[in-house]
Simulated scan of single mutants.
Amino acid sequence: MEQNTNEEVVLVSACLLGQPVRYNGGGCADPALVLALAETEVIPVCPEHLGGLLTPRLPAELQGSDGAAVLNGCARVCDLSGADVSAAYVAGAHAVLALAQQHGATRAVLKQNSPSCGCGQVYDGGFHNRMVAGDGVTTALLRRHGIKVESR
């Protein structure tokens, strides 16, 4: 999308824009979001890709708490095989923050429930489709830096 200097800059999960970057190789385009942001400078982001993870990849969930705890070293992100992928999630969160700062973004619209992008609720870490209160790693970092985050 083209830059419009009269509008704010918004980070948007690349999957919500239809890019096939989700763990399963799919996207989850949100046409209403795209339409709502038509006159806005949008910066597509995928924290997992920016952190070095590939698509497709095993699903991952937060274990031990939420994204803020991962940033503090008190919890982790593990994939379905049990591998700790926290470092990639933290690196991706910092890359997204750097993009926000570079482009002057003050708002982000991120994919709900994700261990990176979840806002207000995330999967509980047991891979049983149960939700708990909390934010993903990227959401937690952006909020720490005063960036407003909402999920879709």
Results as ranks from 00 to 15, higher is better:
Glu7Gln: 09
Glu8Ala: 08
Leu11Asn: 06
Ser13Asn: 01
Ala14Val: 02
Cys15Thr: 06
Leu17Ala: 09
Gln19His: 14
Pro20Gly: 07
Arg22Glu: 10
Tyr23Lys: 07
Asn24Gly: 07
Gly25Cys: 09
Gly27Arg: 09
Cys28Thr: 10
Cys28Gln: 15
Ala29Cys: 11
Pro31Gln: 13
Pro31Ser: 15
Pro31His: 10
Leu33Arg: 11
Leu33Gln: 14
Ala36Val: 10
Glu39Arg: 04
Glu41Ile: 10
Glu41Asn: 12
Pro44Asn: 09
Pro47Phe: 06
His49Trp: 14
His49Gln: 15
Gly51Leu: 09
Gly52Leu: 05
Thr55Pro: 03
Thr55Leu: 10
Pro56Trp: 02
Arg57Ile: 06
Pro59Val: 09
Pro59Lys: 08
Pro59Phe: 03
Ala60Lys: 07
Glu61Phe: 00
Gln63Leu: 08
Gln63Gly: 03
Asp66Val: 02
Asp66His: 00
Gly67Leu: 13
Gly67Ser: 14
Ala69Glu: 15
Ala69Met: 14
Leu71Thr: 05
Asn72Tyr: 11
Cys74Asn: 04
Ala75Asn: 02
Arg76Leu: 12
Arg76Asp: 05
Asp79Gly: 02
Leu80Ile: 04
Ser81Pro: 14
Ser81Cys: 10
Ser81Lys: 08
Gly82Ile: 08
Ala87His: 00
Tyr89Pro: 00
Val90Arg: 09
Ala91Glu: 12
Ala95Gln: 15
Ala95Tyr: 06
Ala98His: 08
Leu99Gly: 03
Ala100Leu: 07
Gln101Ile: 05
Gln101Leu: 10
Val109Glu: 01
Leu110Arg: 10
Ser116Asp: 07
Gly126Leu: 06
His128Trp: 01
Asn129Cys: 05
Arg130Cys: 13
Gly134Thr: 06
Asp135Phe: 02
Thr139Tyr: 00
Thr139Gln: 12
Leu141Asn: 08
Leu142Thr: 01
Arg143Ile: 11
His145Phe: 14
Gly146Cys: 03
Gly146Trp: 09
Ile147Gly: 00
Glu150Lys: 10
Ser151Met: 04
Arg152Ser: 14
